[in-house]
């Protein structure tokens, strides 16, 4: 019961801060703008790749539709989108330490373990909401501005997904994206427990993600042995539902690997925060 109250309080804290809306505002402006610009000026990719197919296949709706652009926009979930999560998660502990609010909060009959758990859960809820908002904006604004239709995916070959099937795949993809972003949130929360100002965990998390992504994508033999230990190696799991058949076994293994990272960052946060002296 107390944990539920703490989660509720943490959610209010998150949604009362202006920084929590930066992501929503950016997505709310940028996604419709991209869709509008593509509608107005075309999609460069279309000229080179799709025109030959348009004459060879029979499609339902336009080939360059809201779903196709939404699919391509999912790549932002790698590097760009985590910034919105980090901005909130990185401030969670460090912000309170800097502002001194822990002094009134932690002198209540509440354990630090409960506070950590509440902060993690509340941040995950925020993560789920903002990822869902991205999905909603991409598919919603895309469908309104560019129209809907079959989804054309270049995977190992060419995969054409019907409109309904594409929607289902997007739904699974965004669910997996939430899980990926939860790892990002967990890392930012852990770094936040180590600092008394929120700049360090925000920059630190972002730096770790960029370095890890570089190491994950480089095709160098020497790096192969460390790749399983980099959480970014499993980041592209949200593209897996767009394969045929859906590789459920791979997805499951990826989710277990990502879950281990979430668990690791959570435990490290507990160790760090439970022992932390609240000095400010």
């Amino acid at each position: 019961m107390l944990l539920l109250k703490l989660i509720y309080i943490e959610l209010i804290k998150i949604f009362k801060r202006p920084r929590s809306y930066i992501g929503f505002i950016t997505i709310g402006i940028l996604i419709p703008l991209i869709m509008f610009l593509i509608d107005k000026f075309g999609f460069d990719f279309q000229q080179h790749h799709f025109l030959p197919f348009e004459s060879a296949f029979l499609f339902q709706g336009s080939l360059v539709n809201g779903y196709l652009i939404s699919y391509y926009l999912m790549t932002v979930l790698w590097v760009h989108f985590p910034f919105f999560i980090i901005l909130v998660a990185g401030d969670s502990f460090a912000g309170e330490a800097a502002k001194g609010t822990f002094r009134i909060f932690l002198t209540r009959p509440v354990s630090r373990f409960q506070v950590i758990t509440a902060k993690f859960i509340a941040t995950y809820i925020y993560t789920a909401i903002i990822v869902a908002f991205l999905g909603f904006m991409c598919l919603g604004a895309g469908s309104i501005i560019l129209g809907s239709g079959d989804l054309f995916v270049f995977d190992k070959g060419i995969l054409i997904l019907s409109q309904n099937e594409a929607l289902l795949r997007f739904f699974i993809g965004y669910l997996l994206a939430i899980f990926v972003q939860m790892v990002v949130a967990s890392l930012a929360l852990f770094l936040s427990t180590l600092n008394d100002n929120s700049v360090a965990p925000i920059i630190g998390t972002y730096a770790i993600i960029i370095v890890s992504i570089i190491l994950s994508i480089l095709k160098i033999d020497a790096l192969e042995s460390i790749k399983p230990y980099l959480f970014t190696t499993y980041f592209d799991v949200f593209f897996s539902p767009f394969a045929d058949p859906i590789p459920w076994s791979d997805i499951f293994n990826y989710l277990i690997a990502l879950g281990k990272f979430i668990g690791l960052f959570y435990i490290l946060s507990i160790v760090s925060f439970v022992r932390k002296d609240i000095l400010s």
Binding site: K13, K16, K99, G100, T101, R103, I104, R108, P109
Partner: peptide, 17 residues
């Protein structure tokens, strides 16, 4: 920490949300 339900405290300058 249940003991802290019996304690009220003001530590240094109070900082609120």
């Amino acid at each position: 920490n249940s003991i802290y339900s019996r304690i009220g405290a003001l530590v240094e300058e109070p900082d609120f949300y």
